[in-house]
Amino acid sequence: MGLYISAAISGIAVGLLYGMIGFAIVMLYKSTGVANFAQGTLATLGAFVAWALVTDAGLPLLAAIPIALIASGMFGVIVYFVVIRPRASAGNLNITVRTLGLSLLLLAVMEWRWGALAPYRYPTIVQGDGIQIASVVLPAQTLLIAGVAAVIMVLLWALFRYTRAGLSFRALAEQPDTARLLGLRATRLSAATWGLSAILGTIVGVLLAPSAFLAPSMMESYLLFTFTGIVLGGLTSLPGALLGSVIVGIVSNVAIVAFSLEAGVLVVFAILLIVMAVRPQGLLGKQEAVRL
């Protein structure tokens, strides 16, 4: 029994990480209706930029990270104008496929620039022994991830709930044509959303790289868990993304100790399929409003 409790606790820790990747995807989906498959590579790129600032430019990590965040925000905006905005009326499927293409392109660029010597050891932001709960040890970096995930979720939730920009994002996501007709600056808002999601990606990348090891394809194996988590939570709900991801983390880690490591992935696939078939709006998501 103790083993299951420990596995569940370790599942919460890793689920928070899946959830943070999920935030960025959910935010973009909420405000533009596009599922961004490039989120993982954007995160990796951000981590590489911070890393290059440390190793090539000799900056301390805590100086490199803010610069990388700003750079990735600008890059997100550029991506919007270069990749997403041209012929934006082509429909969300078209745009979603563009994000897949972008992901492949970024991956190729990172392989070309950094791939030969990957993976790299990545500095942790905090060191320390962490804490022990049941028989599981939570290292300091894991506790930091949990804290950052909580802060980001609260900030994003407040942004969507209480600010004019957040309200505009939601209106734009629901009825882009009407939002424009009422005078919302759709282009500016969408560009801002892309910038923000790229920044979130970089935060995730920098936090994840010490344990996942920095390599161009670092995020790939996380995306299945993340997508399952956000589908489970409801694609449009930020708290849902976190809840769904934590559930995925717990269930897969408990399945691993109960059955086998392979069972962990099988269970996650099963969750994904069942949720999509039985409750497509997820746990906390809203049913799509019927459009006439």
Binding site: R164, Q175, A179, L182, A289
Partner: peptide, 21 residues
């Protein structure tokens, strides 16, 4: 066809009108 933001409250719909204007 009115084109309400169905998942937003009435108050929020009004706010969107004000932001746009």
């Amino acid at each position: 066809g009115r084109r309400m933001f169905a998942n937003l409250t009435v108050e929020e719909n009004l706010k969107v009108g004000a932001i746009g204007g």
